[in-house]
Design a protein around this nucleic acid. Structure first.
Length: 593
RNA sequence: GCCUGAGUAGCUCAACUGGAUAGAGUACCUGGCUUCGAACCAGUUGGUUGGGGGUUCGAAUCCCUCCUCGGGCACCA
């Protein structure tokens, strides 16, 4: 519709012999119905160029468009008005909307899916945990944001690959292994994966504290950890070089990976591939060395012992790719990851999600990667997000340490469960404890995910436990609730009577709800283009809000109502959009709550 | 010190990338369950968009300058 109006306008400008780049014609969807459905500021823009009153210009354009419309017998535009200083407001005919409604009804469960990225390979890399370390709320944030882009790309028709990059070599592992040896606690061999993971996390912190502590003459933690780090790289290629270390290392990796599976399941992510640092550092090291000094493309230098990339030449800062011990840093491992991604998938788009603290880091590595292979830079996108802070509640009062993802989710889930138990005349009263627990988890995850995604990506997020768990207003559970109510009606009615439901223009009202339907596709598109799902999140909130209003004022399941079939059709469309929209936010719907 | 984000209602956030009277939620107050699920709906109150200057028909948005806060700046990830 928008392009149709732009075409009309450019035709009119041509007829009036006005030179204006048609790409600069701005047509936007209005928020206020009295300003029509679409609005254009062309006359205001031209006013300066033509040295003429904007309303006069608008009038000229308007007259010309009316002639064009008459000639072409186009009836989608009902009327055009000049408003305010010279806005051209387009009112779209009811017919146009009913045709769209029919289309949406026919699309059924595929509503929102397009072919925009058809045959394009799209990699979404996110979550990126370090083995042996705790999974904290920052990982949840990266996961939720990344998973959403993965699903948005999927809806755009791309050949999507969901991947994560797990750190299984490096200093953090060395610290944890040293911790296991020195902490003086028995291994939790027969405990749950979560308990094992917690133990590893504790050992890491113990190692890290000893590593960073002011070391006196006799304190050898730093030296020992550095030595272990070297040995880890060795045992990956040759486990026989240190069987004892290999044993603990493999055990720890196994425990971490087992636990990660449980948390991925709760988060709702399924990965197509797990990249491990242990499988990228060899290629990374090789590629860096091949391009150091006078060799290869001469990208890296080695002024002292370390191999570095001099970012200053590009307006950034220097970063070390291979340290003076000859070991690869995260930078070199990332170069290896570029190599592996292209080897495995040859992507058209490769998106990486990280925390904001890695913004410049990533830019520099990408710059270096682009010098190795221009494609690596051109096709790579990066989304850095902010920090997640808890505002109120007992968890936020913690000082120091991190907040475990598991505890955060558990607390939210417990809160929901309590609310369900307390609810009078609960639709879930017949449900078993297990079923209620599962529903509570979905609702809790919707609250967590939505509170992350409704804010524009890149900004810090303040998660108010009190507000988010109130579940009223602009929250995930509100969206779920709107879906549940729509679904509840559809289950109640006799579906055979509305089989092959069609939209009859006679009954169509075209309120804000129907207009919202037409904006779903663009909400999906904008979210992916701008790498910020908050566009979709806010759209869904508006949609739910319009639905709730409609619901409160209309007796929908009333067969005697002449609009009965039309109303049911509206509910069907709403339900499908909400379900698919929530899917793209990574939120699983529930049937009852 | 250099680079880089951010500052909008008491609180948490929007504002279609320069457009119309800056919008939502929350909190406060008011009304609505004998009616498809009230985790809801309808309404009231709440603003010098951090301060100052500039650009133009028009600025939360662009430019300059201060103030405040976050992040980054060579062998961590």
């Amino acid at each position: 519709m928008k392009t149709q109006i732009i075409n009309l306008l450019s035709q009119a400008l041509k007829n009036l012999h006005i030179n204006f780049d048609t790409n600069n014609i701005q047509v936007s969807q209005t928020t206020n119905a009295k300003n029509g459905d679409f609005s254009c500021t062309i006359a205001l823009q031209l006013s300066k160029i033509l040295q003429q009153n904007p309303r006069e210009i608008a009038q000229n354009i308007l007259s010309d468009i009316e002639i064009i419309l008459k000639k072409s017998e186009n009836e989608t535009i009902e009327k055009i008005e000049i408003a305010g200083p010279g806005f051209l407001n387009f009112f779209i005919s009811k017919n146009y909307y009913t045709q769209n409604l029919q289309k949406f009804l026919n699309q059924n469960k595929d509503i929102g899916k397009t072919n925009r990225l058809k045959n394009k390979v799209f990699i979404a890399e996110h979550t990126d945990p370090n083995l042996f370390k705790e999974i904290h709320i920052g990982h949840v944030m990266t996961n939720v944001i990344g998973e959403s882009f993965y699903r948005l790309a999927q809806f755009a028709g791309a050949n999507v690959k969901n991947v994560t990059f797990q750190g299984d070599v490096g200093m953090h592992i060395a610290k944890a292994l040293w911790g296991i040896k020195n902490i003086g606690e028995a291994l939790p061999l027969h405990k749950t994966p979560y308990e094992k993971q917690k133990f590893l996390g504790k050992c890491y912190v113990f190692g890290e504290q000893n590593f960073s502590a002011e070391t006196g003459e006799g304190n050898s933690a730093k030296t020992e950890i550095t030595q272990i780090n070297k040995e880890i790289y060795e045992i990956i290629n040759n486990p026989e070089s240190n069987p004892e270390l290999t044993k603990i290392y493999k055990m720890g990796c196994k425990w971490s990976l087992e636990y990660l599976e449980t948390i991925y399941k709760i988060l709702g992510s399924k990965f197509d591939h797990y990249f491990l640092e242990s499988s990228t550092f060899t290629d990374g090291t090789r590629i860096v060395k091949e391009n150091t000094g006078t060799k290869g493309k001469q990208i890296f230098t080695q002024p002292e012992n370390a191999i570095i990339f001099e970012g200053e030449k590009f307006g950034y800062h220097t970063r070390v790719f291979i340290n003076s011990e000859g070991l690869p840093t995260y930078e070199a491992k990332d170069i290896g990851l570029f190599y592996k991604k292209w080897e495995k998938y040859n992507p058209d788009y490769s998106l990486t999600i990280t925390g904001g603290d890695q913004k410049e880091y990533f830019t520099i590595v990408k710059e270096a990667a682009g010098l190795i292979n221009p494609e690596w830079k051109e096709k790579t996108m990066h989304r850095a997000h902010g920090i997640l802070k808890l505002k109120t509640g007992k968890m936020s009062s913690r000082t120091g340490g991190i907040i475990r993802a598991q505890e955060w989710i558990n607390e939210a889930q417990t809160n929901v469960l309590e609310k369900i138990e307390k609810q009078e005349n609960s639709p879930l009263s017949e449900f078993s404890h297990e079923e209620k627990t599962e529903i509570a988890q979905n609702i809790a995850m919707s609250a967590i995910k939505y509170s992350i995604l409704k804010v524009s990506a890149g900004k810090d997020i303040v998660y108010d436990e009190k507000v988010a768990l109130d579940f009223s207003g602009n929250t995930g559970p509100y969206l779920l609730y709107s879906y549940v109510r729509a679904q509840s009606i559809l289950k109640k009615i006799d579906t055979t009577t509305i089989h092959n439901n069609t939209i009859s223009p006679r009954h169509a009202k075209i309120t804000n709800l129907e207009k919202k339907f037409t904006q779903f596709e663009s909400a999906l598109e904008i979210s992916l283009e701008s790498l910020s799902s908050h566009n979709l999140a806010n759209y869904l909130y508006d949609l739910a809000s319009e639905f709730s209003s409609f619901y409160a004022h209309t007796k929908i399941a009333d067969v005697t109502n002449p609009d009965y079939k039309y109303n049911i059709a509206i509910i069907q469309i709403f339900k499908n959009i909400m379900k698919n929209g929530l899917y793209c936010l990574g939120i699983k719907t529930v049937e009852k709550m």
